[in-house]
Amino acid sequence: MKLQLQFEYAAFLLLGIYAFAQTGYSWWWFAGLFFAPDISMLGYMVNSKAGAFFYNLFHHLGLAILVYLAGTFLSLPYLQAAGALLFSHSSFDRILGYGLKYPDSFQNTHLGKIGKKPN
């Protein structure tokens, strides 16, 4: 099942790359901002609950789609690009096993535990 999910998220990543390509922005923007959603992890400096909230906000596929669609309907290519970047980044994270976070710990995700296994 894990491999099946990785293939699904790889398809999502390709879809996000395609959506970004439709915006007409330079690929330098895509490369330069690809990891920008990870700034949301700064919320963990406050506590796990705030960290999980901000991480999940910037890594939610549904929100990414809404941002992209808002850019489409409002004819705002920069909003489309932001949505495509959020979608692509979140899909990439899911391929690596980084899911949405539970508020108790960064390692506790909807895809299971991440990090080093205890000996």
Rank of each mutant, 00 (worst) to 15 (best):
L86F: 11
Y98L: 09
L42E: 01
F35G: 11
R94S: 05
L61D: 06
Y98W: 09
M41Q: 08
A36D: 10
G112Q: 11
M41V: 12
M45I: 02
F92T: 09
S75L: 15
L85H: 05
F35Y: 15
S40G: 00
K101H: 10
G112M: 12
F106I: 03
S90D: 09
S48H: 12
V46N: 09
D93N: 13
Y44R: 02
D38Y: 06
A31G: 15
A84Y: 03
F30C: 04
F87Q: 00
L86M: 06
F58H: 01
D104T: 15
F92L: 05
G51Q: 04
L96I: 08
I65L: 00
L57F: 09
S48A: 14
L63K: 01
M41N: 06
A84N: 07
L42I: 04
F92S: 01
D38I: 10
L86D: 03
L100A: 09
L96V: 08
L100G: 08
V46Y: 15
G62L: 05
G32F: 12
L79T: 11
Y98A: 09
Y44M: 02
H60S: 13
V67Q: 06
H59S: 07
A36P: 15
I65Q: 00
V46T: 07
M41E: 05
G51T: 03
F35Q: 13
G32N: 07
G32V: 15
T72S: 13
S75C: 13
F53N: 03
F35K: 12
A52G: 05
L100F: 09
L111Q: 10
K101V: 12
W29L: 14
Y44W: 04
F53K: 07
L42K: 02
W27N: 03
W27A: 00
T23C: 06
S91K: 07
L85T: 15
N56H: 08
L79W: 08
T23S: 08
Y102E: 13
A36F: 15
G83V: 00
H60T: 14
G99C: 01
L76M: 15
S88K: 05
H110A: 14
G32Y: 11
P37H: 13
L42W: 04
M45Q: 10
S105L: 13
H59T: 01
R94E: 05
F106V: 05
S75P: 09
Y55T: 06
L76I: 14
S40W: 00
P37A: 13
L111K: 08
L79R: 11
F87W: 03
G43F: 02
G62H: 04
G24R: 02
F35D: 11
T109R: 14
H59Y: 01
K49T: 01
G112A: 05
A64N: 02
A31M: 12
S91E: 02
L57A: 05
K49R: 07
F73D: 12
K101L: 04
G51D: 06
G97L: 02
A21P: 00
A50C: 02
R94F: 05
I95H: 01
K49W: 01
F92K: 02
